[in-house]
Amino acid sequence: MSHKEIYEHFHPDEKAFVDRAWEWVERAAERHETKLTDFLDPRQAHILFSLANRHPDAQVLLNGGSAGAERQRAIIAPDYKPLDDEDIGIDVLEITSDDRRISELDHGDYLGALLGLGIKREKIGDLHVTDDGCHALIVKGIGDFLIGHMKQAHRVDVTVSVLPLSALRVVKPEMEEQVLSVASLRLDGVASDVFRLSRTKILAPIKAGRCRVSWKPVEDPSHALKQGDVVSMKGFGRFKVLEVEGMSKSGRIRVRVGKFV
């Protein structure tokens, strides 16, 4: 398959990942190699699956540590290799504290603390946050470093330990639901309502490449959203289009969205 055929279905910003993913698939199919990736976001997982489907001699197994995990590690292997017993290489980093202020910390506080230690985002999976701490999924092998270096999360003193994946305490992400009445499903229009910003202010981050729709870079403010889309905008947050409920008598569209909190 030519590179042109591969790239025509993907955003130019995704070229580097497409190159790597296609190499993994080719190595599995033609050299009988097995590859365990770091954590992939759902868009990267989709790209990897679509490439593997074009090669009959390769297979992909995804596992993020829990059912419905957003970020998952992938095993790419020859199609004949049994993968059920393969170690997916995920540990649980338990973050706790005696400080009552830990109940005020959120997903961004914990992720920021981990990234602030120089850990790359792809080494961290989903974060399960509760009032008394966090279970962060991490690739095996970095736990000792984090035990030695992670002492605070957003100015709260914390203690960390590494647990087996079987000890994971799963927390489903919370969403604030709201029903909007919009003229259209344009990205800029819906996002400005969700984040309570003027249409003018929402244009800048979109055009600057700080917006992703279902983990795919989108720089066109007029991009039409659809049910199921997850919109993330750096510095503002994320929301999901839960349901397009239909059109009102005045011709406006009722759409139910959930903003991640």
Rank of each mutant, 00 (worst) to 15 (best):
G251C: 08
P56C: 11
F236W: 14
D157T: 13
K259G: 05
V18E: 07
I147R: 15
Y7L: 15
L83S: 04
S198W: 06
L93S: 01
V230C: 09
G133P: 07
T200Q: 12
P205S: 09
S214K: 01
V218G: 04
T34H: 04
F239K: 10
K123D: 13
L127M: 09
C211D: 06
D144I: 08
A67R: 09
V261E: 12
K123W: 09
F17H: 05
L51F: 11
V230P: 05
R100H: 09
V179G: 01
K234I: 11
G258N: 04
G112L: 04
V213H: 13
S250G: 06
E30A: 11
W22P: 01
S198L: 06
V218E: 15
F260G: 02
D157L: 13
V60E: 02
H223F: 15
M175V: 14
A183V: 14
I95S: 02
D220A: 12
L61M: 13
L163G: 02
A167P: 02
L165T: 05
D193K: 14
A191T: 05
P205V: 10
N63Q: 05
E5F: 02
L117I: 02
A67W: 01
D109Y: 06
S192K: 05
S248E: 12
A28G: 03
D157Y: 06
P12D: 10
G133S: 03
A69G: 11
K151N: 14
P221I: 05
K259E: 13
D229Q: 06
D13P: 02
E176R: 09
L93N: 06
A191I: 03
R20M: 09
S161N: 08
G118K: 11
S50Q: 14
F39S: 06
G148P: 04
D85T: 10
K120W: 07
E23N: 13
R43F: 11
S248N: 06
A16H: 12
K240F: 04
G141C: 04
F145L: 05
L225T: 08
V162S: 07
M233R: 05
R155C: 03
W22G: 03
H32E: 13
P217T: 05
M150Q: 14
V156K: 00
D106S: 13
Q178F: 04
L225D: 07
I88E: 03
R43N: 14
E33A: 09
E176M: 08
T130I: 13
D229L: 00
G189A: 14
L48Q: 08
S103A: 14
P56F: 09
A153K: 07
G133E: 07
M233T: 08
N63W: 14
Q72D: 08
